[in-house]
Structure formats: structure tokens, C-alpha cells
């Protein structure tokens, strides 16, 4: 179909959206990404039964956390489609891009986290 989608969307492949963890989404925002969204299979069609449902719950948790710390929850979202729906994929990429443009840049991108991992000796 050779459809094009906004170039600002960077795709990270995971075997299933069930692999996506709260920390993956939080770290993306923490390190300055303007928004992150997960695109999972349609609900009820997960090859691993619950992967996309678990992802949705994690996305919801991250949205709560963003609200708590004072960022817009809509910077993190969940979408579902089947692998045959390229036009829907493009529509979601555009929708997310427009949404993030309206919210503006992530204010965290101007500073860096200072977190040190203290290994137990």
C-alpha cells in the first residue's frame, strides 16, 4: 500500500505488547520523549491470550503516574488494531502526532535524570 505515516514516530518492536513494562513507558517520558503509544492486537485476539490486555493495564497505570507527577496523561496511550489494518495504523500515528503537537514538547527534555544504581556490595 506504500502508505506514509509521520516521520516523528519511532517504532520499537516487541514480541507482544504484553512485553511492555511500566518502566519502559516511564523511562521514555523521563528521558524526554514527547509521547509514547502502544499498538497491540485487537482485544480478544492475543496469541498469548492476555498480552494486549496486560499492556492496557500498564498504560493505564502510567497515565495515573503522569497525572500524579503533573504531566498530561494523554502523552501515553494504547491503540489496538489487527496486523492487516495498515490504514488504521497510519490513522493512529497521525492522531497521536496531532495530539502530542497540541500538548507541546515534554518539559522534561531540557534536563537529565540523576539516578545512580547502588549495587548491593
Amino acid at each position: 500500500m506504500r502508505l506514509s505515516y509521520p516521520a516523528n514516530v519511532k517504532i520499537i518492536l516487541v514480541p507482544c505488547t504484553g512485553k511492555v513494562d511500566v518502566m519502559h513507558l516511564l523511562q521514555a517520558i523521563q528521558r524526554g520523549a514527547d509521547g509514547v503509544y502502544c499498538v497491540g492486537c485487537l482485544e480478544g485476539t492475543c496469541h498469548y491470550n492476555q498480552g494486549n490486555l496486560r499492556c492496557r493495564e500498564r498504560v493505564e497505570r502510567v497515565r495515573e503516574i503522569l497525572q500524579e507527577i503533573g504531566l498530561e496523561p494523554d502523552r501515553v496511550r494504547m491503540y489496538n488494531l489487527s496486523s492487516g489494518e495498515a490504514p488504521t495504523f497510519v490513522a493512529y500515528a497521525r492522531e497521536m502526532t496531532e495530539l502530542i503537537r497540541r500538548l507541546g514538547p515534554n518539559p522534561l527534555k531540557h534536563s537529565k535524570p540523576s539516578i545512580r544504581l547502588e549495587e548491593a556490595a
Binding site: 511500566v22 518502566m23 516511564l26 523511562q27 517520558i29 523521563q30 503516574i65 500524579e68 507527577i69 503533573g70 504531566l71 518539559p107 522534561l108 534536563s111 535524570p113 540523576s114 539516578i115 545512580r116 544504581l117 547502588e118 549495587e119 548491593a120
Partner: peptide, 24 residues
């Protein structure tokens, strides 16, 4: 890790950055 990320982001958003260590 989640709490450290939350504190880090919240404090930077308030312009009161904090240095954090994390260990378990």
C-alpha cells in the same frame, strides 16, 4: 525503579531537581 522515576520527574517538573540512588 518506578518510585525513583516518579520522584525524578516530579522534582524536575517543579524545577527542584533531586539526586537519587536506588538499591534493593
Amino acid at each position: 525503579a518506578v518510585l525513583a522515576a516518579e520522584i525524578d520527574m516530579a522534582r524536575r517538573l517543579k524545577n527542584q531537581p533531586i539526586e537519587l540512588g536506588q538499591t534493593t
